[in-house]
């Protein structure tokens, strides 16, 4: 499951990198920083990415998850800081 999630997120991040003309986002790893300190996305780009990932997760797993809810926002360590933390967060929501 984790590999599928990583592929979905990577694909969404690469699409966003193309849109933003950001070379860093074209070469995605778990360490790729997304939002916050050193992150490549601003708030609008992050929300757009979240919408994209939710849709792709639904298409693949037939499960609707909400990434930008209060739980995510209130976590001390943001699940949106890098690709690895977002993968873990999606996996956790799918297992709930």
């Amino acid at each position: 499951m984790k590999e599928h999630i990583f592929e979905i997120i990577s694909s969404a991040v690469r699409d966003m990198g193309e849109e933003l003309e950001n070379e860093t986002l074209q070469h995605v790893s778990e360490e790729t920083k997304l939002f916050g300190n050193g992150g490549a996305l601003d708030s609008l780009a992050l929300v757009s990415l979240i919408a994209d990932v939710e849709e792709k997760i639904y298409d693949t797993f037939e499960r609707a998850i909400v990434l930008a809810d209060e739980r995510a926002m209130s976590q001390r360590t943001s699940p949106f800081r890098d690709v690895g933390s977002l993968c873990n967060y999606v996996e956790k929501l799918l297992n709930d």
Binding site: M16, E19, V47, S48, A51
Partner: peptide, 11 residues
């Protein structure tokens, strides 16, 4: 019509 805003508006 660009991807970023379109995604958000759709959502």
């Amino acid at each position: 019509e660009k991807k970023i805003l379109k995604n958000i508006l759709q959502y």
